[in-house]
């Protein structure tokens, strides 16, 4: 018993090695692929040990870390609204553009504190072995007579209110202008009310596939990467409508107060180079934020399922909008949901 206590008490002293970099992503298959294609090669080439951890977007941990000045995470992958907010709040360091080459990134995938990592998106998909007919676009998704069955959308305002407005005929470039007004929000909720009984909601990215496979939903809005992955195992089973794409960009950021910030910037520079990213795209349907993935015809042809190839027909989730209105609309959504 005493030995155990001593062991436990000495564990904090087994602190991190001198210059080991801690990289934190969202985990899952993508991170496993990134480890193989990006982190380990860079670590071998530079001799700097890299440890990668995962989190589920719990920003509170980063806020708490910076507040107590005991920063144990160095580089973090963050979603766009969290990046913007975190940068304003000073929990992420300003990106060192003298170390990271800003010109290689696709336009609008870099910001003050973030360097674009991957684009991700969600689109409507269904299981072709269960359903032959499918709606074309969101407007038809509301037609429960021609296309019976439950629809699975994301729990929350983000990605759901946009879908409602798109289904109601609002043009893509006006969605956020409409949603910014009270009337626009009411319009979105009224639209959702129309098929309320046929809606199911998911919270984690794993659920849409689960719902479709388990018979709980016929059509689902799900992350494109997951669908492409599933189709790799069972070719052609899942059909996806790229015209219903909603997408955004995740970025790499360095946590403020990290003792390994310098290595962190070098790391970001290293893993956003074209060659490692091409290796990554070969083993996982990722859509890196490197401009070649949007502009180079050969690379686009090699990665037909990358979000970047379809971004033009999709709706970009407006970062500013969600930073400003996020909390308010999430509350409104929850109030609507429980009515």
């Amino acid at each position: 018993m005493r030995l155990l206590l001593v062991l436990l008490l000495t564990l904090p002293c087994l602190a991190r090695a001198q210059s080991e970099l801690t990289v934190v992503g969202f985990g899952g298959g993508f991170q496993d692929a990134a480890r193989r294609a990006l982190f380990e090669p860079w670590s071998r080439a530079t001799g700097i040990p890299v440890r990668d951890d995962s989190y589920n977007g719990e920003m509170a941990r980063i806020y708490a870390m910076t507040r107590t000045r005991d920063v144990v995470w160095d580089v973090v992958m963050v979603e766009a609204p969290e990046l913007a907010r975190g940068c304003e709040d000073g929990i992420f360091q300003r990106m060192d553009w003298s170390v990271v080459d800003r010109t290689k990134f696709a336009p609008s995938t870099t910001s003050e504190c973030g360097a674009g990592a991957v684009s991700w998106g969600a689109a409507l998909f269904w299981d072709t072995t269960r359903t032959a007919r499918a709606p074309k676009g969101f407007a038809e998704l509301w037609d429960t007579e021609r296309f019976p069955g439950k629809r699975a959308l994301r729990w929350g305002a983000k990605m759901t209110l946009e879908v409602a407005l798109l289904a109601d005929g609002v043009p893509r470039d006006q969605v956020y202008a409409v949603l910014a007004t009270r009337e626009g929000q009411d319009r979105a909720f009224r639209k959702l009310d129309a098929i309320r009984d046929d809606l199911v909601f998911w919270r984690s990215g794993a659920q849409p596939m689960q719902l479709v496979n388990g018979g709980e939903a016929t059509y689902a809005l799900g992350y494109t990467g997951r669908v492409v992955q599933a189709n790799a195992q069972a070719p052609g089973r899942y059909a996806m409508d790229w015209g219903t794409l909603l997408w955004s960009v995740d970025s790499w950021a360095v946590v403020a107060g990290s003792p390994h910030a310098a290595e962190g910037f070098r790391f970001i520079q290293g893993i956003t180079e074209l060659e490692p990213l091409k290796r990554l795209a070969a083993i996982w349907p990722a859509s890196p934020a490197h401009r070649a993935f949007a502009e180079d015809a050969a690379i686009r042809a090699a990665n037909p399922d990358a979000v970047a190839s379809h971004a033009a027909q999709g709706l970009f989730l407006d970062t500013r909008f969600w930073v400003e209105k996020g909390e308010d609309l999430e509350k409104r959504f929850a109030a609507w949901a429980q009515r």
């Binding site: 977007g57 719990e58 509170a60 907010r85 909601f201 919270r203 996020g326 929850a334 949901a337 429980q338």
Partner: peptide, 25 residues
């Protein structure tokens, strides 16, 4: 959150939302 419907959500989920998502402690 995982197996309940829209009308089954409990307060704890909002405490987590405010703590982790919007950092409105």
């Amino acid at each position: 959150a995982l197996i309940g419907g829209a009308r089954d959500q409990m307060v704890g989920s909002f405490v987590v939302f405010f703590t982790n998502q919007t950092i409105n402690w």
